[in-house]
Design a protein around this nucleic acid. Structure first.
Ligand code: MN
Ligand code: MN
Ligand code: MN
Ligand code: MN
Lengths: 247, 247
DNA sequence: GTTCAATGTTAGTCTTGCCGAACTTGGATG
DNA sequence: CATCCAAGTTCGGCAAGACTAACATTGAAC
């Protein structure tokens, strides 16, 4: 049951496979896994085979990769570790939200279960990390709020930022500068299909801001009807289901 | 210069070789190194050869092992990491002093230089770890106080506890129970050579306590004349030199 | 001064994680 | 429906770190 008998690399694979389907439904591929792990596809193929032999995922050659319940449990454990550590670094050691990901990526494999529980306690059992991502509870329940990417939000609507991908630190610094952080409220003015930009205004500000495709797919916002001015997707918040957005 | 380009195992070897001569002058052997690393002597032989090839230590076959300046710098860096982490775990996360060693042993390889500096700052640049061991400064200066093992202290004298070896957690718990911690003052009553026990009284208490050889070699006390009633070793505190005790 | 046991070294093997090169597969394209 | 190519797989090899078994050295005891 404890995650500790897996190698660091196995822990990273499971976490990566799990998070790949946290905010999207497109299945993870060997190539994407290789890019994200910083290794060659042949290495991923080998590793996947070993994880399959350990009963942590299912995979037929050239087929899709899917976690077993056991693999998923380990993955959720790693996600919990990662996000608690990120939160700890920001809250206790004064890190910026753009600095914590890489540090947590290493620490998540090194801290003991005891230390994770002490951190959780010290922070008062936080439910979201500095990027707005939900922190699974100790019993392995992830609580996924319904959300869509900013670039897919309906104009004109008023939405709340749910989470921001922590993949690009430079982008996170830009977002801090303009005040675009989790829980920020903003108005979607326009989606320009050909230039692929989204025009928004942060609530309390006058200035319009244009976000390119990279930025508007990194930011996820509420899908609920609350605060909306026009009708758009009527997607009910859920803790387990998928949220799908109309193109 | 950064320690990070060494493997975890190389970092542990260097740290172990360095700490072996921190409180004693007897040179480290392959067998002792193997015991402390939890590996076979043949493994140590191989590893030592690699570290020698990297210019981190000197070693002729069947000869003594000694760190080069480069090896020593890495070792001191690791000792600083280890002791800062131990201090952090006690001060911030509420660990007991008997719980921190194993956690720090893993973490020391995982935290970044940045995190170490932030921890140092957060703690206000502490100079001693929870076991009384000196924390080398960032520029690599270890400050070694003169100290001798409790079992070698002259009766009858009054001494202060300088440091206690953190090797045995159960022993540390016993020491907490009786109030024997760094900076505690105590009176040495008797050294019994054949039963190998030391009789002490903690200041503020009446009760005599008998400590066996394991306990009285784990505890190191002041060598200075301060507080002494009889004359004993006249060893002046120093930051760089060796302290030698008369047998 | 020999002897011999403890200490240390060497050689061969395993596992993990990675690589490049060569091969296989399957779906998109015409 | 045949082709082709990107995606995925297999294979051999390498380095690190560990082991066991066999061999070498040292120095303490006699
Ligand atoms: Mn990781
Ligand atoms: Mn995060
Ligand atoms: Mn260590
Ligand atoms: Mn310590």
């Amino acid at each position: 049951m404890p995650v500790s008998d897996l190698t660091n690399s196995a822990q990273d694979y499971l976490k990566l496979i799990w998070t790949a389907t946290e905010w999207s439904t497109t299945p993870i591929t060997v190539t994407v896994l290789a890019e994200r792990m910083g290794v060659r596809p042949s290495t991923v193929s080998d590793s996947i085979k070993k994880l399959k032999d350990q009963g942590l995922l299912t995979h037929a050659p050239y087929g899709t990769i899917e976690l077993t319940p056991a693999g998923s449990a380990h993955a959720v454990d790693m996600v919990r570790r990662h996000r608690l550590l990120e939160t700890f670094l920001v809250q206790v050691l004064g890190y910026g939200w753009d600095e914590v990901h890489d540090e947590a990526e290493v620490l998540e494999h090194a801290v003991s279960d005891t230390m994770i529980e002490r951190i959780d306690q010290h922070l008062g059992h936080p439910t979201r990390d500095p990027h707005g991502d939900p922190i699974p509870s100790a019993d392995g329940q992830p609580h996924r709020p319904g959300a869509i990417q900013l670039g897919h939000a309906e104009p004109i609507s008023e939405v709340t930022v749910v989470r921001i991908s922590d993949a690009d630190p430079a982008m996170l610094r830009y977002f801090s500068d303009i005040g675009l952080t989790p829980d920020a409220q903003l108005t979607i003015h326009q989606q320009r299909p050909y230039t692929d930009t989204t025009t928004i205004t942060l609530s309390g500000q006058q200035k319009n801001i244009d976000l390119g495709p990279a930025a508007s797919s990194a930011v996820w916002v509420t899908t609920s009807l609350i605060n909306s001015r026009h009708g758009q997707e009527h997607i009910v918040e859920t803790t387990t289901g998928e949220s799908s957005a109309r193109k």
